[in-house]
Design a protein around this nucleic acid. Sequence first.
DNA 1: AAACACCTTTACGTTTACGTAAACTTTCTC
DNA 2: GAGAAAGTTTACGTAAACGTAAAGGTGTTT
Lengths: 147, 147
Amino acid sequence: MASKKTYSISELSKEFDVTTRSIRFYEDQELLRPSRRGQTRIFSSKDRVRLKLILRGKRMGFSLAETKELFDLWDETPIGNEKQLLKMLTILNNKRAQLEQQKNDIAQAEMEMDTAEARCREALAELQKKKKQQAPANDDEKQAAEN
Amino acid sequence: MASKKTYSISELSKEFDVTTRSIRFYEDQELLRPSRRGQTRIFSSKDRVRLKLILRGKRMGFSLAETKELFDLWDETPIGNEKQLLKMLTILNNKRAQLEQQKNDIAQAEMEMDTAEARCREALAELQKKKKQQAPANDDEKQAAEN
DNA sequence: AAACACCTTTACGTTTACGTAAACTTTCTC
DNA sequence: GAGAAAGTTTACGTAAACGTAAAGGTGTTT
């Protein structure tokens, strides 16, 4: 009995901080497939998971089309078709490579931010020194004030 | 003498596999500032670094505007202005948080890919078993063939 | 039953990040 | 010095991912 709850469009909208317009757009692009009660959309927990995946994909720089590809692939891959399964494996490997690239990019960015921050702090320290020279205050007082 | 070399637009285009159109667009958006010899653009090694950063930013899901913000920030931050330096530090922290989020997203994605791959391999193994039952070949031959 | 919240479709508008074509100038290469 | 190669500007076109009305349908609360 895996969470059989359903959701309205505004529930999902609020939970994930995304406009209803976007959610409808995702349905239009066939990334979500809510059922209907009359006209009203009813989202399953599967839809909810998918929405979460869509948003994560966006944060990772994936286009909706890319995300849809993955959804489709997963949906269409028959558990009993060898060819499809192999294709799935190669695509998974491609995605892995992409993630590796992203991890490298992030690591690089972090290193550069480290040096940038170091320079900032150095410059600040330099400024502090000059201040003290101009107004030679009591060191102990300052130390105490910062705690 | 930090690498005083210069580059033509096509050189950069080839090196980073990006169209000249894009490079000119980046200049238009003031992310690059090549000098000119007559009409022709001459890119410095600083421009080259920036281009690299632009592309990395894109891979990380940053818009050109976001990247430009960072460039501007860095350019404009005077080494002697305390306020600017502090602002820089807070922005650096924000970016760090963003990178953390991305790392989490990637880790999640990797886990899911692991389980997906496992299921694929399981299904494939299942198929292999059935094949063998239908055509009960010699196991040793197969093993040998795979080496 | 009037008002209000929430849902719907339809459809035109907007921003970003380029693509593509035209028409022209400058720079190599033979 | 003629032609090809590489560069330029100008400008219209396009795909993605929504924003933003407009106009209206359900339902429930007072």
